[in-house]
Structure formats: C-alpha cells, structure tokens
Write a protein that binds this DNA or RNA. Structure first.
Lengths: 198, 198
DNA sequence: CCTTTTCTGTAGTGCTCGCTACAGAAAGAT
DNA sequence: ATCTTTCTGTAGCGAGCACTACAGAAAAGG
C-alpha cells in the first residue's frame, strides 16, 4: 500500500562492493558510493542503514560470491595438501584477473583506518583469522590421516599459507600477473611436508 | 639574523613517522600529526612543506632507520640463501616487537587511498618493487655462483619471498607474535632450491 | 476520486579535512 | 635600541565528509 523501491537492491550492493574493494572502506566516500550505485544518499540510507552496515553487507556478499572459491576449495578437495594447493592456485587466478578489482577485499579493504573505523578493521581481522583457522583444519585432517609426520606444526603451516595468500593479494594489487602469482603458489607448496617426514 | 626554530626537526619527523606507520597516510590527519609532533600547523608547513612531502620524508627516514635491516641483511650475508634467511628472520623480530608500530610501513601505510593520494600509493608501490628486485639480485648471485641449479626461476623466488614478507607484515598487524612469524620464515626457506637441483 | 505510506531528489546540516592569513614574539645585524 | 627576518600561536579559510529534513512523487487501499 505504499510506493516501492525504484532500484535493484542487489545490483546496488554489488556496485558498492566493487567500490569498497577498489579503494577500501574509509577512502570510499558516500558520494562515490551513490554514484556507483546509481542512487541518491537518502535511498542508500533507507535501504542499507549507514556506511558501516553497507560495508558489512558488502563483505558478506563478497564472501558468498567472489571470495567463495576458498571455502569451496577447502571443502571439495580430498586431502589437506590438495585443498591448500587449490586455494593457492585459484587465488592466483582470482587475484590477477581484470574482471573485478585486484586482490582480496578481506585482506586489503580496511588496512589504513582511523580510530572511528576501528570496528570495521576488527571485522576484517576476525575474518582473516577465521580463514587461517580454516586452512589449519584441513592440514590437521592430513595429520590425523597419517599424511603428515607426527608432530607436524599445523598451526605454523596454516600461518605460512595464510601469509603467502596475503602476499599474493598485495602483489596482485601492485600489478603482478597470473603467471607470477602462480609461481609464488607453486613454490609455496615446497613447504608442505611429505608423508614420510623430513 | 632571524628567529630560529624552537622544536627539534628530526624528533618531530620521527613522531610523524610513527603516526603514519600506525594508521597509514590518509587516516593520519594534520591534527593528529601536530599533536604527535608537539607543534602547530604553521610550524609543520614551514618545516616540511605539506602532508605529502612530510610523508615522503618520513618514508625516507624509515628506510634509513627501522627499515634498514633488510638492506643490511642483503648486503652483509655471504650467500643469497643466507641473505634471504636473515631478512626473513629479522623481519619476524622487527614486525612483532612492541617498541614501535607493527609490520612494515612501506607495505601497510598506503593501501586504502582515494584518487587524491594515488601518487603516495605509487611511491610505496615502487619501493616494494625495488625491495623485490633487491631480493632477486642476491638470489641471482647464488645462481651465478653455482649455488642454485641452472635455469632456476630467480624472479619467481624473489616474488615468493616478497609475498611471504608482505604476509608476515599483515599478520603481525593482526596480532601474530614473534614465534609465529619465525615459524612462517622457517617454512618459507623450504622453497629455496638446494644446489644439486631438485 | 482521496488517503496513506513509503520512496526519491534537492538541498542542506554540523563537522572535520588540509591548509593559511595574520599578528605577535624572538633572535641576529647594525 | 632599532630594524629585519623568520618562527609561533590563534583563528579561520573553502572544501569535502557522513548523514538527514523536507517536500514532492508514486503505488496500493478505500
């Protein structure tokens, strides 16, 4: 019994996500967001609350779309080693493409934050820790299945692969191409212990 | 024949550097800088030009002090392998300490930049590329001396170690301690080829 | 038709941003 | 002491920030 929204909420969220991905949370202004979304500020605030909540929703949308390949890779591969290898390889491909902004939004969108955006910084920090824990879980599977030497430092391996992925994100934003990222990914697999031990 | 400056320029620059290191270029306001430096805006502008030039000078100061350990490690170690190993180890120690902000200023201070700070972003990007080239140079030394198999992809190795260092910087800012970073560093050395070949 | 409800666009709010005009203070030259 | 020059502090510039008051427009119910 009332006027209905004249824009596509999902499409607007998608455009907001791309803007945040490109320049990060604080550096993306409401003016830039409304321009990218094709709407005016009151429509944005009515549909999404405020800038912080729009960002949180954009991050959730990111994890369900562009960032979902990591969760898929970890879930679908039979062994921890294959899961890690696939995450690295697909990260190389995803980070270096020109179909969307470079690198990973969770890694790069809230690095330079003032005190007033500390909560946003903390949100992405938590997601990075969750991602590292997800890597460790699959590596632990290999350890439990005897595919890794007893006593293997799985937490250290998870931190190592998380670091490699974070570095790949940085370098993709610095202009590195798919081939260069793939070479990083391949070299990183040399650190994965062989079943028999060192 | 005129009034002289009442504050220590080097000390003020040092405090500006620490502020930029903590929150990054754009997120550090002139108000925050003047508070940290113990001076008022006109003194800042008279002594350093503007915010961008102050940042550039802070980066130079950083490279000569806090960031100099990488250049030293690369210059002083006899082999490329030892140089890389030392850079990784000292990065772990430097990034995780509480004596100054976490991580590397060159890696983390200009990630989320609006269009008006694109030049600053590009400045640090160039420094990261130079650092990667410096790594490659030492690895090339090992190749030339026969300490690496012929045909070794030294550019790939340099990109890999640059990525690991960038990831260590990110994780130190996420709260990782010295021990965790050292484990990342140790694992990364597994990718360094042995002289005989694979 | 008219009413009700919600969305939309214009036009602004107060605030902080980087930066500076201006006047007074300090130090060396004469 | 006086002049000249440069620094310092106050106070405020225009511009952009996140956000919103308000009025008109649009859709459904009566």
């Amino acid at each position: 019994m009332a006027r209905q929204r004249a824009f596509d909420r999902d499409a607007a969220l998608e455009h907001a996500l791309l803007a945040f991905w490109r320049h990060g949370y604080e550096a993306t202004s409401i003016a830039e967001l409304t321009a990218a979304m094709g709407i005016r500020p009151p429509s944005l605030y009515a549909a999404f609350g405020d800038k912080r909540r729009l960002f949180e929703e954009a991050v959730t949308h990111y994890q369900r779309t562009y960032g979902a390949f990591t969760t898929r890779a970890l879930a679908e591969e039979p062994t921890g080693r294959q899961a890690i290898e696939r995450v690295l390889r697909e990260s190389a491909d995803e980070y270096a493409t020109d179909e969307h902004p470079r690198g990973c939004l969770v890694i790069s969108a809230a690095v330079n934050c003032g005190p007033e955006s500390a909560e946003v910084e903390e949100l992405l920090r938590d997601l990075r820790k969750q991602a590292k824990a997800a890597l460790k879980k699959r590596i632990d599977d290999d350890l439990a299945a005897g595919r890794l030497p007893a006593g293997t430092d799985t937490a250290g391996l998870a931190a190592f692969y998380a670091a490699v992925i974070q570095g790949m994100s940085t370098q993709s934003r610095d202009g590195a191409g798919r081939a260069e990222l793939r070479r990083i990914a391949a070299l990183a697999m040399a650190a994965y212990p062989s079943p028999g031990g060192a």
